[in-house]
C-alpha cells in the first residue's frame, strides 16, 4: 500500500534505478513514457483519478525523480518531472485520452505492476514490456460475455418481481441487446446513441414477447435489460473522485452518468410511444 514498504511490513528505502548526479533527457523520457502509459491504461479502463495520479507518482519516484507533479483528468494526463540538481531542466508530458472501455482486470494488473515496480528491481524496459502485455490482454471471449449479460438481465428481471417466463425472455433479450451495444461500440458510435439504440431494441423485443407470449410482463423484462447499460462505472467513480477531492473529474463523470441515464430512458420511451401510437399496447 505504501511506497517502500516491503511484504514483511518493514520500511525499506525504494530501490533507486538511476541517480548519478545528472539525468539525461533520454532516460527522463523513458521514465515519463512508462509512467504515462501506466496511467493511460488505468484511466481508459475506468480507474479513479487518485489511483492514476498515485500510480504515476510512485513509478516516477521509484526511478529516482525528486519532484513529480501529476494532474489527471478523464480526458487527459499531465505529468511534470523535475530533479533537485543544478542544470537539470523540468520535462512535461501531456497525453490526451480518447476512448474508454471498462476493463477492471487491467486496473488490477497495473496496480499489481506498480506495486512490483516500486518494490523490486524491475528495469524501465521490462516495465514497458509488461505494460504492453497488460494493455493487449483480452480476458474473456465475446460469447462468454454475451451469456453473462443475458444472465445478468434475466436475474434482475426476476429480482424486480418477474416470473419464470420473464427470466427466459430477459435472458435472450439481454443477450441480443448487449451484442448490439458491442457492435455499435466497434464502429465508434458515441455513448448516447449506443445507449439509446440498445435500450430501444430491448424495449421493442420485450414488447413483442409480451404481446405474443402469455404471462410475460414487459416492465420487468425491460428494466432487467436496462440494468446492463446503467452507468455504474461513471457513478461510482464520480463519487470516489469527489471523496478524494477531484471535483472537476467528479463533475465530468457525474454528467456522463446523467447523460447515459437520459439516453436509456429516451430509448425506452421512444419505442413505447411508437408502440402505443401504432396501437400495440395501451399505456
Amino acid at each position: 500500500m505504501f511506497p517502500g514498504r516491503s511484504a514483511a511490513g518493514i520500511l525499506t528505502p525504494p530501490p533507486v534505478r538511476y541517480y548519478d548526479g545528472t539525468m539525461d533527457r533520454e532516460r527522463k523520457k523513458a521514465i515519463l513514457n512508462l509512467a504515462v502509459q501506466a496511467g493511460e491504461i488505468m484511466m481508459k479502463s475506468g480507474g479513479e483519478i487518485y489511483r492514476v495520479e498515485e500510480t504515476i507518482t510512485r513509478v516516477c519516484k521509484a526511478c529516482g525523480i525528486d519532484n513529480v507533479e501529476v494532474f489527471a483528468m478523464p480526458t487527459g494526463i499531465f505529468v511534470t518531472l523535475d530533479n533537485d540538481i543544478a542544470g537539470d531542466t523540468a520535462s512535461t508530458y501531456i497525453r490526451r485520452i480518447h476512448s474508454s472501455e471498462t476493463d477492471l482486470n487491467k486496473i488490477s494488473q497495473v496496480n499489481q505492476f506498480s506495486r512490483e515496480f516500486t518494490t523490486t528491481s524491475m528495469t524501465i524496459e521490462e516495465g514497458m514490456a509488461r505494460l504492453e502485455e497488460i494493455s493487449g490482454s483480452k480476458p474473456y471471449h465475446f460469447a462468454i460475455r454475451v451469456v453473462a449479460a443475458g444472465l445478468c438481465a434475466s436475474c434482475f428481471a426476476v429480482l424486480f418481481g418477474g416470473s419464470t417466463i420473464d427470466f427466459l425472455s430477459a435472458l435472450i433479450i439481454g443477450m441480443i441487446s448487449y451484442t448490439l451495444s458491442r457492435f455499435l461500440e466497434k464502429y465508434d458510435i458515441n455513448f448516447f446513441i449506443r445507449g439509446l439504440c440498445s435500450c430501444a431494441l430491448a424495449t421493442f423485443l420485450a414488447l413483442v414477447v409480451a404481446t405474443s407470449v402469455r404471462g410475460a410482463s414487459y416492465p420487468y423484462i425491460i428494466s432487467g435489460a436496462i440494468m446492463l447499460f446503467v452507468p455504474g462505472v461513471p457513478i461510482t467513480n464520480s463519487i470516489r473522485d469527489f471523496l478524494s477531492g477531484d471535483m472537476l473529474s467528479g463533475l465530468a463523470r457525474m454528467v456522463e452518468a446523467f447523460l447515459i441515464a437520459v439516453s436509456l430512458a429516451a430509448g425506452t420511451g421512444i419505442i413505447l410511444k411508437i408502440w402505443t401510437v401504432i396501437g400495440g399496447v395501451t399505456l
Binding site: 477492471l104 462505472v233 457513478i235
Partner: peptide
C-alpha cells in the same frame, strides 16, 4: 491486496433502481 474499484463497481450496480427508471419513463409517457 487488490484495487477496491474491482469489488465496488459490480456491487453498486445491483443497487441501481432499474425498475424505478422505467416506471418514471412510463408515467411520463
Amino acid at each position: 491486496k487488490d484495487a477496491s474499484t474491482i469489488f465496488v463497481i459490480p456491487g453498486i450496480l445491483c443497487l441501481v433502481p432499474g425498475l424505478k427508471i422505467f416506471n418514471t419513463m412510463y408515467a411520463l409517457l
